[in-house]
Design a protein around this nucleic acid. Structure first.
Lengths: 211, 211
DNA sequence: AGATGTGAAGTAATTCACAGCC
DNA sequence: GGCTGTGAATTACTTCACATCT
């Protein structure tokens, strides 16, 4: 099991190779992929090494083989389903964005407390009332979840997800969640991100506005 | 100028102290704050040390003093404005979430290419057509931006933001941006987050579904 | 000549552990 | 006794640099 930084970059490499290459590109050098991913060439080679992808000194890495190799590491062989809780603006953005994007990973069920949002299909994703959560997760054997509810509800939702068998959670609510050690948690805190950018924007040399 | 991990945690500490404490709490120990933030007590003490916050061995840290001290580090003395580009679901989620949340940091202008979204007010945030970007940023002296447009447009938007004087960017588009070294960039990649969670959810010991 | 693959070196981030204080 | 503040130790992560290959 590899470190999370590595997995994050592998996911990025795969997307870059799949979507951002001139059509017909057969081979790629570590420094080219590094340039796309905005990391160092040594980092790319080290990352690929950890999953036993190999290239040749003359041609670099074969793109198709690389995507194959990355997918073998990143994808569940028969596909994985994800549950989304919270169908607000953020939840809908997530559904829209992921819809049809990956063959082996899809948001298959969404939940919300508000009756007017549920029992309909949104971009191919069925929306259920929150009470159905345990039932649907068990029925569809869903092991990963996304929390996109207000901060006040996030902890309770996390606990229900964990109790229903979820082993990994992305949390978009701006409050750190408490989950058992063996459940993987990824905090995606919009507040922290913005406050950090504001801080560093301020600390950098000022722009020379030539006017 | 402190490392970005530290700044991220400081932002979190402040929010926890402001919003998640029983009313009337005057003092807090490092292990209590650590527990809320889900980090180690040594981490909390080290972080506070880097910004010269001090506590007393008997009482811990004074909450009001701590918030003061964190704000002195995190906030611009007279406030900072942020520009948002892209008023889709994600953009609206960001506006809604930040509205009125922080006194010294606010999304003050939003931009979109689609005419039906612009020239109106959304949660107190004025929406402008994309062409106005340079003009408004200069007028309001905005130095930080959020990119919430589709991947295909993200790089072009980034370049316009930088040219208009922006020094820090949060990027929600799922593609790494190329910006000058002296512009701070925070990638908030939803795809990476979800693929990583899917990976670790899979690699963890399976849930024992008792049925 | 210019790649890859990788041990070794270097850096950054976190935790330990304990002196000093209340 | 239990806390803070912090040098030292540890761990994690990244880059260097070079033997090797084509």
């Amino acid at each position: 099991m590899h470190p999370q930084n590595v997995i994050g970059r592998l996911s990025l490499y795969r997307r870059l190779l799949s979507n951002h290459l001139p059509t017909g590109t057969q081979h790629i050098y570590s420094h080219e992929l590094a340039n796309l991913a905005r990391v160092s060439p040594a980092q790319v080679r080290r990352d690929l090494m950890t999953i036993n992808c190999t290239g040749s000194p003359s041609k670099g890495y074969r793109v198709d083989q690389l995507i194959e190799c990355l997918s073998a590491e990143l994808d569940h062989p028969t596909g994985q389903s994800v549950a989304l809780v919270g169908i607000g603006n953020l939840g809908r953005a997530l559904i829209t964005y992921f819809h049809g994007r990956r063959e082996k990973l899809a948001i298959m069920a969404a939940f919300d407390r508000e009756p007017e949002k549920v029992n309909r299909l949104f971009h191919g994703c069925q929306c259920y009332p929150l009470e159905e959560l345990e039932h649907i997760l068990k029925r569809d054997d869903i092991r990963a979840g996304i929390i996109a509810v207000p901060a006040t509800e996030a902890q309770a939702v996390a606990e229900r997800l964990v109790a229903a068998g979820v082993r990994g959670i992305v949390n978009y609510a701006p409050v750190p969640l408490r989950v058992p050690d063996d459940v993987y948690l990824e905090e995606q805190d919009m507040t922290t991100a913005l406050e950090r950018v504001a801080y560093f924007a301020r600390k950098r040399p000022p722009p020379r506005r030539e006017d």
